[in-house]
Amino acid sequence: MSTPLVEAVETVEAPDAPARRRRGWRSPSFLVGAALLLAVLALALVSLLWSPYGLDHTDPTARLAGPSPQHWAGTDRLGRDQFTQLMLGARTAMWIGLASVAVAFVIGVPLGLLAAAAGRLAENAVVGVIDIVIAFPTLLLAMLLVTVYGASTAVAISAIGIGVSAEVARLTRISASRVFTQDYVLAARTCGTGPLMILVRHVLPNIWHTLLVQAALAFGVAVIAEASLSYLGLGTPPPAPSWGRMLQEAQSTVSVAPWNVLLPGLAVAVTVVGVNLLGDGLREVLDPQLRQERQAGER
């Protein structure tokens, strides 16, 4: 074939992928979610340095007081400052949320990868375990653990972490399986790349954004779970403050001091709505890339 044709045809071919657009960071759900979560996080961080009163401070003269300049969020029936409790509760929520998500990922991601990478038998076994754990209520698991080991922060974190890990493992397995069917994984095998390096080089880089979104959502689940456990007295034991226990303690006085129920409830709601919006936002942010890869995956 003559060379001029090659050159002429070369000019015909245009790159088919338009330049990647990075407008996602300005998505409203990402911004609102981040703002809500940052507000809660700020409460928790500030509480490390300063809070209106000490943790043990009680004001016997002002029990069940309404919001005032001295007590911004009122006091409970023991005369404890509710805003202080709220700040310290934020700390507990953030800490337990992060720690249980970490536990969930440390267990779930390797399990999911193993299931995706292993042969059919091993995969079925892991999927079976995952399904059982998903079906098993986290609360029941927590009660069991508490009965055996007693209530403690570590037990709460373990129970929540194990409960959430099943969902993480499931998602990891599904996204990793999808990557495993791609030709570039087969190409890597023919390049002599070993299974571990295939995970590190090819699988993880192509699923981390899915996992990141999942981490945000798992954080929300963990915060609710922590509040529920504390509400039932299975979470962090007193005196460590918790939104769940604040709710539980305020329950008996709800007719005289409704704000005592309202505030911790609102705190839980804001946090959960915040992380969910953040998760949705992250998905949008990462989507232009995802969409491109999905196109690449088709055909």
Partner: peptide, 9 residues
């Protein structure tokens, strides 16, 4: 080649 090249490398 759309599926045989890792998009993140």
């Amino acid at each position: 080649p759309r599926s045989s090249l890792n998009p993140r490398m």
